[in-house]
Design a protein around this nucleic acid. Structure first.
Lengths: 189, 189
DNA sequence: TACGGATTATTCCAGCCGGAATATATCGCA
DNA sequence: TGCGATATATTCCGGCTGGAATAATCCGTA
């Protein structure tokens, strides 16, 4: 019926599987659980996402409460349609790879606008930055292992690390081949 | 001054390095050169992008011509500011890795909402689809090699293939571990 | 030569995102 | 007890994307 759920919409629905809550509570939980590593978590976007879910009948307002004179908080609950949408979305997103056009590929495609020397330096800098990210992910993974968390809750970190490591290794090969002039480069700009 | 160039804006500027042209001509060239493999090429977005580049002084209208009674076509040329912006953007995009939050990672993060059996099937289907994409990329690479094109013009395909292969290998390991129950899965929904 | 379909070329609109603005309440501390 | 800083909670607005609408011309063909 509707287009596939946006990441934030999916996350919101997944939280409502646990229990009804209001948007700001979801926002806090997403930050606490470090979902920011996997998607962009912005309060503004979250409110918009929930508004759409409500409009489309995937969640429903179950009441408002008010603490002090703060704005009313609307509590939302999951509907059956929402539960199906979660299942359908996750299924589809796992099953089908889609090219999401990473910016790095765009840059590679235009890299010939730079000189070979410039490119080598930039590739080296990227390589270093990737190593740092990979280390961070390793720390996260070790910590989760230590706390004996079910692997299904953190294997996304292992996935990310694997892919980043592959990019780093590719960069290493390219840098080496650029240095030895094994890889031909067009006349610099 | 302005925020980093969008992929389409970058591509437009890169085309104007060759010679001045009008938007539709850029659009055709982008399709011809298969830039659609690296970014989303939509005519509507391209016109918007060029409008912004013009507003920001990175390109400038150098005249209009008219063939028959068709709408006037405005030809654009690159400015010095545009040339610098191209260089700066490519430099920055090559140098600094940014997490772009791939949808697959989002789905992995919510995969525990499915049963282990469902997940295995979906992972297998994804694995198969990835193999097909990898083959396609290999064909493209072989063809470019055969035509002795400078490698800098197609190494983005090699990059994509490398990353996809890493994802496939990761999936293979996960599928195997799920089958042998080596990887623990939370109580299914 | 009349017609339909593809090509050429651009504009428009609705949707999503995200930074900023807004407004109140609470807490630490001097 | 008064003050600023931070947390709570939501709304707003501007920007980018992309599908659809629009419109004229060209081309093949019957």
């Amino acid at each position: 019926m509707s287009s596939p759920l946006t990441p934030l919409a999916l996350a919101a629905i997944a939280l409502l599987v646990e229990r009804p809550m209001h948007p700001y509570e979801m926002y806090q939980l997403l930050l606490e659980r470090r979902d920011g590593h996997v998607m962009k978590v912005r309060a503004g976007s979250l409110y918009h996402a929930i508004e759409r879910l409500d409009r489309d009948g995937l969640v429903t307002a179950v009441g408002t409460d008010r603490a002090g004179n703060r704005p009313e908080r609307t509590t939302y609950a999951l509907t059956d349609a929402g539960r199906s949408a979660l299942h359908a979305s996750v299924t589809e997103m796992l099953r089908t790879p889609v090219n999401e056009f990473p910016r790095f590929a765009v840059a590679l495609n235009e890299a010939h606008n730079l000189s070979l020397e410039e490119a080598v330096v930039l590739f080296e800098q990227r390589r270093t930055a990737l190593d740092a990210e990979i280390s961070e992910l390793t720390t996260i993974i070790e910590s989760a292992r230590g706390r004996a968390v079910d692997e299904a809750y953190w294997f996304v970190a292992d996935y990310r690390r694997t892919v980043l490591a592959a990019e780093r290794d590719w960069l290493d090969r390219i840098i080496d081949r650029l240095r030895t002039k094994d890889l031909t480069w067009p006349h610099p700009a």
